[in-house]
Amino acid sequence: MTGQYLAFFIFALMAITGGVFMINLSRVIHMVLSIGLSFFGVAGLFIMLQAEFLAFVQVLIYAGAITIMMAMGTMMTQGGDEGEKPKRRLHNVLSFLSAVLVGAFLLYGIYTTSWPTEPTDLGANNIKEIGVTLFSNFVIPFELASILLLVALVGAIVLAKRDGEKD
């Protein structure tokens, strides 16, 4: 049991520290890398929840693709302005307050609700089950998701293409 708790704490700590670093670091590229740490932590939590497939997807898409893509985006949008920005003190205070309040509400809710304690066993090899369900019960959303990805692909290309290029 202690081993599980330890793993949970390590992963949770990874996820939260990653997020906190993202907020607090000063250079953009460091922020991007720290959020990668957070994504890894979440992947670890997924493994602990017997969602190995999702954990891999998480690592591949988030920790891999999105983090790298954002890092590339950071490089592409470098330069420009790092000058003194107008301070938005009120904005920041209100943002902090609302974030804390939202978190407090959620935690309060979690704390006061009595959750079922017994975990359901989803099977050691639930990847197959995911595949079967996805292609039987959720086939239409699945296809819609693929269309969404295609549209996103086309849209991203159109948006990012230089204006002058006409072909």
């Binding site: 599980q4 907020i23 939590l45 974030a99 959620l106 979690i110 304690t117």
Partner: peptide, 20 residues
């Protein structure tokens, strides 16, 4: 077993950090 509340708490904290 780590109880459900722990995972939810981690989720809530991450969400708040995201909001901020």
């Amino acid at each position: 077993m780590v109880p459900l509340g722990g995972y939810l708490a981690v989720g809530a904290i991450l969400f708040s950090i995201g909001v901020y």
